[in-house]
Design a protein around this nucleic acid. Structure first.
Lengths: 231, 231
DNA sequence: TAGATTGTTAATCGATTAACAATC
DNA sequence: TAGATTGTTAATCGATTAACAATC
């Protein structure tokens, strides 16, 4: 019984919220004060009804014939996602990907900031990368407690992922953004969210394949019986 | 009418296939010859019935009481995803993320290989990163045609994404793996797949928030009426 | 006012889960 | 044989889409 696979209601909605936020901030920068779901939908290649349903979960109230107040909408979405006050995060594993994430400036828009990184490699420990110190993993527990950091970004090799996860969880980490392909087992009360880039490529490959075969990238409904492979 | 938002049947299944593949390759490396959905499900924190349904779309046939032949299953999944013959890809935009992806060795398991990278920055053009040449974007069209490359990985700044996409599409690219937050407009016959890391963090944030509020990270069903925010 | 847009309720669609016969 | 597992059909669940009254 896989009990720690948590279900979250309205998952697709939550996943779409960041793109609304991004567009809204762009509109706000352009001086736009009101926006309708029709406009948002066009910009994001969605149906207007989807946008309306999505926004409603934040509790925002719009004006018929006008739409929504852009700044209010930004505030409601940020509050819903808990992105209104910046969450501090530690990154563990300063490889290529870890280094790239340390230099990614976009996290500030997601209410998150990497404040330090950890590794065990003596070559990396002591360096400063993108303005952030790389510390030895031995110092993780102490710093996590002193700085009350709750979120960790995991960019270690897959075969070390569980071991490192156990360490950082016992140090007090409550949420792990897992960039490794390893499935983590975490205790009750700890959230692990996997960022699986292979997923995305699987969808791309399949759509490309079916496009060249079938025609339009859409997989036909009932006729997947042919199979030129014998066992 | 957002016509280029393509629908693909069984999207969740396709997204799960890479994790089966990863586990199966591990089991194969350990010398395991047969595997049941019960075992796979336990390793991936899924329900056995989900695994069974997922695997069935590849056309694999199992043996009651035994399970599936590991190597056959690997072959069927790879064939379904079109990962059996290595697809060559170009990467555009040699920033932090682009560099990290160029050094990522895991793509070979996904039937994909980055063969060269492109940029317009004179400082970057001419370099060799992780054994791959960085060429000027001017050479993209010529090389794409000569090498018959169909897939591009887009890691340019978001505000250049559409412009660069137009260039590479006219050069013959058929599939774009888009790592920018910008929504791309692509013509009929071209597939654009967005890799949106903010999505993942939105889910993590929301689960963390509701865990500390509600209790177990599961969002309650019908009582999201309270809202301590007045307009 | 006329009409675009919101917000809600109902209908549809697809994915997950349950049930169970078939199989080795 | 007994029983674990497959594969299929049916039931449930949730998300998307459609319809439409309310509103400014």
């Amino acid at each position: 019984m896989p009990g720690n696979v948590m279900r979250i209601a309205k998952l697709p909605t939550i996943q779409r919220l960041p793109s609304y936020l991004r567009i809204l901030k762009m509109l706000h920068a352009e001086g736009r004060e009101q926006v309708s779901t029709t406009t948002l939908a066009a910009l994001l290649q969605l149906q207007a009804i989807v946008v309306r349903k999505d926004l409603s979960i934040t509790g925002i109230v719009g004006k018929p014939r006008v739409g929504y107040c852009v700044v209010d909408l930004i505030r409601f979405i940020e509050e819903y996602l808990d992105w209104n006050n910046t969450n501090e995060a530690f990154l563990i594993g300063v490889g290529h990907l870890g280094t790239a994430l340390m230099g990614y400036s976009g996290f500030e828009d997601n209410g998150m900031r990497i404040v330090a990184a950890f590794d065990t490699d003596p070559e990396k420990v002591g360096q400063t990368i993108h303005g952030k110190q790389v510390l030895h993993l031995d110092k993780f527990a102490d710093l996590t407690r002193r700085m009350h950091v709750q979120i960790a970004i995991l960019t270690v090799p897959a075969n070390h992922a569980q071991k490192v996860a156990d360490v950082i969880i016992s140090a007090g980490i409550r949420g792990i953004w897992n960039f490794t392909p390893a499935k983590l087992e975490v205790p009750e009360g700890v959230v692990s969210q996997q960022q699986n880039i292979a997923e995305g490529f699987a969808v791309l490959s399949t759509r490309l394949k079916h496009m060249s075969e079938g025609g339009s990238g859409k997989i036909p409904e009932g006729d997947e019986d042919e199979l030129d492979e014998e066992v």
